[in-house]
């Protein structure tokens, strides 16, 4: 009896979470112009995406921003994690505390404060400002993931490398980073999806010519949800889901 209740609970829970998404995906293949009736299967909306210059421009912006953000925040976040791992002094612990701040600050606050920062520093709103903003909230996530990976890292491995003739840099690249690699790649994937999906921070910090896919979708929705949007969201969903599955696999790797 209680087992059956549990099953019902689980099914309802998953329906609640995934039904809207499932509807969106299904309707992206619907031959009708409206999200009401099913009128047959088509890939026309996906084909139409490829001919829409605005969507292609937004996709290009999104990919450039996500890629650059991933590279920068991975380097920055990994460096932070290494520093926090090696430094248990007051400074190290303070850094750890500050790394959490961008993780817990509401995105709206983050967006507004970044906007204020760009206005103050006279940085023109555009692709650059969006990248800076994305790095600001992605790097801490990378740092936390890499730090978790380094937890339990045996420091005598670095000493062993030095002992065998490696300089500090060689020890970093041949021992520490390879061992932390699953964490680093997982962090990078997470940064990529977060940057690709982000709406709120981007909304505040984007300028003319730096419209990303989420921003473009939002503007399209103002004229009603078309199957084209469903198709576009499905594409985004597939990209994000792939990255998240890969991330999950990597985080679980043990040595």
């Amino acid at each position: 009896m209680s087992r059956r209740c549990l099953w019902i609970y689980v099914v309802l829970g998953y329906l609640f979470l995934y039904l809207p998404i499932a509807v969106l995906v299904v309707f992206s293949f619907n031959a009708s112009r409206f999200n009401v009736n099913w009128e047959g299967f088509t890939l026309a909306w996906y084909a139409k995406l490829l001919t829409n210059a605005n969507i292609l421009a937004a996709a290009k912006n999104s990919l450039i921003i996500a890629t650059v953000t991933t590279v920068l925040s991975t380097i920055l976040g990994t460096g932070l994690a290494l520093g926090m791992h090696r430094n248990s002094s007051v400074l190290g612990r303070l850094t750890e505390l500050f790394v959490y701040v961008p993780v817990i600050v509401p995105e709206t606050v983050m967006g507004i404060s970044l906007l204020a920062f760009f206005v103050l520093t006279n940085i023109e709103l555009g692709v650059t400002s969006v990248i800076i903003s994305h790095v600001a909230f992605c790097a801490p996530f990378v740092a936390l993931i890499v730090q978790a990976r380094l937890e339990g890292f045996d420091d005598s491995l670095v000493e062993a490398a030095l002992d065998l003739g490696a300089t500090e840099w060689q020890a970093l690249f041949r021992v520490t980073l390879p061992i932390a690699a699953p964490g680093i790649v997982a962090g990078a994937l997470l940064a990529f999806t977060m940057s690709l999906d982000d709406f709120i921070v981007t909304f505040f910090t984007a300028g003319p010519g730096s419209t990303t896919l989420p921003l473009y979708i939002f503007s399209m929705v103002k004229f009603g949800v078309s199957p084209e949007i469903n198709a576009l969201c499905t594409v985004l969903l597939v990209v994000s889901a792939t990255a998240i599955v890969a991330y999950d696999k990597l985080v679980r790797i043990r040595d």
């Binding site: 030095l162 002992d163 490696a166 021992v175």
Partner: peptide
Amino acid sequence: PYRRDVNTVFQNYALFPH
């Protein structure tokens, strides 16, 4: 250490797991 002509066998072996 990396320029000293000595090598160490560590207590916990410190083998590179990767």
